[in-house]
Design a protein around this nucleic acid. Structure first.
Lengths: 211, 211
DNA sequence: CTATTTATGTGAAAAAGTGTACATTAACTC
DNA sequence: GAGTTAATGTACACTTTTTCACATAAATAG
């Protein structure tokens, strides 16, 4: 499955959940297309490729779709995250409760500042960065969120990889590039650069697409 | 200019700034390719399309490149932002100092809670959401960052558009879709969905690309 | 029961994006 | 100053992604 397709599928999944809570039972390719911002043909082709079939004229059963897509997306597996860097953004993410519906759990935070990691007034425990290996092992952590300042980003990245955390969501302005580890495994890195997003927005405002 | 290209250009721009501070004066397509995670041919093609020319064997002058790309990216224009929703994430963004180097300024926050907007202990003033039109006008705001809970996202979006803010960076889990306003203008919307990113990471970990 | 409508499923065409190869030019070497 | 090396610039081929068009099946209507 390619990257764009994966994004679309996670979007379908979310939209379906929302439609389900509204009480709908069936959905048409066109609906999901609207929700995900793509064309209906793509939705059908995506499902077709994944072996998901609807009923001619009847559309797709939301429940079945959710089950199928859920399996594909690995719902039900343990999806435990840690946060490296418990500054304002790190703490904000700890308190964010929008992860639970997706089965994602923030299980610990890490910081280099004793004042921070001795503070127990947070939803999850914060440890000194030196204890990362031990905690990752104990809590079965599979992904880490990097919310440290620019100059500490590479170090955090390396520590995560060394601890065996192969999924990385990086909020620092450095673009981290995945590189195979010694044992041949390839980390999965997503970089979110807020300043970059804003820059792009300003650009697009300045030079609107004519299309 | 297409979207992917725009992302690459902002990346080139950042890398160039970094290289410049290190003291370099020239750069080769290959360097920028590494920095932006693309091939050298693409870098050359990008520049070629933009009318930027290097010297055979000599590469590109960093200074000239920065000027050219800076013009393209609209550096020097006022890039004023407001934050809608001053919860933990909104406040974290207010305190974030990674915007300045890019000429982006957070100039105000908005919230619906009197306890929040009467609190003056923040880097920028926080106003009640009802005053958005007035503030946008006075401070020449061109972009807004939405960091409100899911159920308030659409409302915030509409208020921004109504106030004439056409650039939107949305952190709420709702995917906001740009739709032409009454006067025919098309807003620019970027959605950042953290849970979605994590989901994708977990998926990619589960089903590594063979490639 | 036949005709019509509506939505899926998919092959083929079109479009977009990327990589390859090589001609071209500039600098350096001897 | 001839030869070699290093990097740009671009035509062309290749791959990937999207759209188009239409055959197909199910439901509905008369």
């Amino acid at each position: 499955m390619n990257n764009d397709q994966l994004i679309r599928i996670t979007r379908y999944y979310r939209s379906l959940n929302r439609l389900k809570t509204i009480g709908l039972e069936k959905v048409f390719a066109h609906n999901l297309a609207d929700a995900a911002g793509v064309s209906a043909a793509i939705v059908r082709k995506d499902f077709s490729q994944l072996g998901i079939h609807g009923q001619k004229r009847g559309g797709y059963e939301i429940h079945d779709l959710l089950v199928s897509l859920g399996e594909i997306l690995g719902k039900g597996d343990s999806q435990n995250c840690i946060i490296i860097g418990c500054g304002r953004i790190g703490k904000a993410l700890m308190h964010y409760n929008g992860f639970e519906p997706d089965g994602i759990r923030i299980v610990a935070g890490f910081d280099s500042d004793p004042l921070v990691y001795s503070d127990a007034s947070h939803p999850v425990p914060i440890y000194p960065i030196s204890r990362i290996d031990e905690v990752v092992e104990a809590l079965q952590v599979t992904a880490g969120i990097i919310t440290v300042p620019e100059q500490a980003a590479s170090d955090s990245y390396e520590r995560l990889l060394k601890a065996g955390v192969m999924g990385i969501l990086n909020f620092s302005p450095i673009t981290l590039k995945p590189q195979a580890t010694e044992d041949g495994k390839m980390p999965v890195v997503h970089n979110i650069n807020i300043a970059l997003e804003l820059e792009q927005i300003f650009y697009e405002l300045k030079f609107p697409k004519v299309k």
